[in-house]
Simulated scan of single mutants.
Amino acid sequence: MRYICTSCTSPTSSLYKVYSTPGSIQLTTCKGCGNDVDPYIEREWLLVVMDCVLHRPEAFRHALYNREPFATICAQDVQQQSSNVDDCNKFDGLRQLLRYSFIAALIRTYLWHAATTGEENESGQHSTKLLVVLFQSLVGENIMAVATIVSASIIVKKSIKGRNSDSSRAAHKTKTECNDVSSAFFHSRIYLAVTVPSFFHLVTIFAIIWENSTTVCLLGTLFVLSLQRIGVATVVDEQLRREMDTKTVLTQDVSLRLKQSIPLVVGIAVRALCTHIASNFIGNDSLKCIGIPLQQSSFGSFCIS
């Protein structure tokens, strides 16, 4: 089952039926909740983006699981899992993920450039710093994504181990014989949930053009982090429902809601630490923080961007 229901995350093989009349379709009805599988399929990207800005999990499920171009990255088909592990096209999926990561790094670099435009910098030094910021953003984005993926995988495994009985785990093992494809699909969703919200730094760039201040950078960073949090939480929730084979709304469990936020917190902490160490190593402490500056300590100042 390649797609999911945006309401209850139940797997489905199709989103709509196409009739002979051009442009005439009928949305598939979910067998789990009885609602349309994905009402967003009839909406334009702008409306989907607006609902993502409003932090609606249904919009994130649609974008990450059912909508092009993200849905085709490491897309899985349960009927083919046991026959061919290479259906995921891991290398092709990795290339697409790195492309989105590079776009996010470019946006962050231009944000730094826009925030430091009014400062007096020699052209040569500023160009060198621009390349350093681009490399730092690209590496930092991938470090954060990998750390989030690792911590999310650990949390999912521990949650399944704590809630499933031995007989349920045995049935689950038989149900998912090909773990490579399932893991690649889950990891790619987490990667997208961390990387794609960084595109919303464009809003911060437009705001900086109007008013270049640390408050604008702070609010923009908090906004992107909130989108990343709900994106990661949505993917973890869907994976838990899939692995546990349950329709229970797991996000209503307070402990699970807290656990869903841990992977992103770990990813942010690892990226901030690595960025801080790299900045001290190459001697670029003068780079302006365009995110959330933390209190200066004996180890220097930290910045969450």
Rank of each mutant, 00 (worst) to 15 (best):
S20F: 12
T148R: 02
D77V: 05
Q296M: 14
R229I: 00
S198C: 08
L130T: 10
S183D: 06
I143D: 02
L98N: 03
L227P: 02
G267Q: 01
I268N: 05
G231H: 02
I73L: 09
G118Q: 13
I4L: 06
A75S: 13
T204M: 11
V194Y: 08
G140C: 08
E119W: 11
T28P: 00
N164V: 04
H187R: 11
L15S: 03
A272W: 00
Y65V: 02
G23M: 04
L54Q: 10
K90P: 03
G140N: 07
C217Q: 08
S198K: 10
D92C: 14
L134H: 10
S14F: 15
E58N: 05
T275L: 10
S83N: 04
L47R: 07
C5S: 04
D245W: 08
V78Y: 07
R61F: 02
R2N: 11
V156R: 02
D51L: 10
T9A: 09
V85C: 07
S165H: 06
R95G: 03
R229T: 03
K175Q: 06
Q228C: 05
Q96K: 13
L264C: 11
V270T: 08
Q260C: 14
D166Y: 00
L97H: 04
S286Y: 12
I25K: 05
L219S: 01
L131H: 11
K288Q: 13
Q260P: 00
F206R: 05
I154L: 14
V216F: 00
I290A: 05
L97C: 08
R108P: 00
V266E: 03
L98F: 14
P69Q: 06
I143P: 01
L130M: 13
R56L: 07
I73M: 10
Q81L: 10
G140A: 06
D166K: 15
T215S: 11
V203D: 01
L258V: 13
N89M: 08
T204V: 14
L258S: 12
V139A: 15
I282T: 05
S279H: 03
I262P: 09
S159G: 02
H172N: 05
Y16F: 15
H172I: 00
V18C: 11
S101N: 11
I209N: 11
S101C: 04
D285P: 01
D87L: 10
N35R: 05
Q136S: 15
G220L: 06
D36C: 02
P57A: 11
C33R: 01
E119A: 12
D86S: 15
R2G: 14
L94H: 00
E120M: 09
V48S: 09
G283N: 01
S10N: 15
W112M: 08
R189N: 05
I277P: 06
I304Q: 11
T28F: 02
T148A: 14
A171C: 06
H187V: 00
Q260G: 10
M144Q: 09
V266Q: 03
I292F: 08
N35F: 07
K158M: 15
G34M: 02
Q125A: 10
R61K: 12
L15K: 03
S198D: 08
V78A: 12
L287H: 06
N35Y: 03
A145V: 09
P39C: 04
E141G: 13
E44Y: 01
C217F: 08
L222Y: 07
N89W: 01
L250D: 04
T214R: 11
L240W: 01
N212A: 11
Q296T: 15
L264H: 02
L111R: 06
A63F: 01
M1R: 00
T109M: 09
S159P: 01
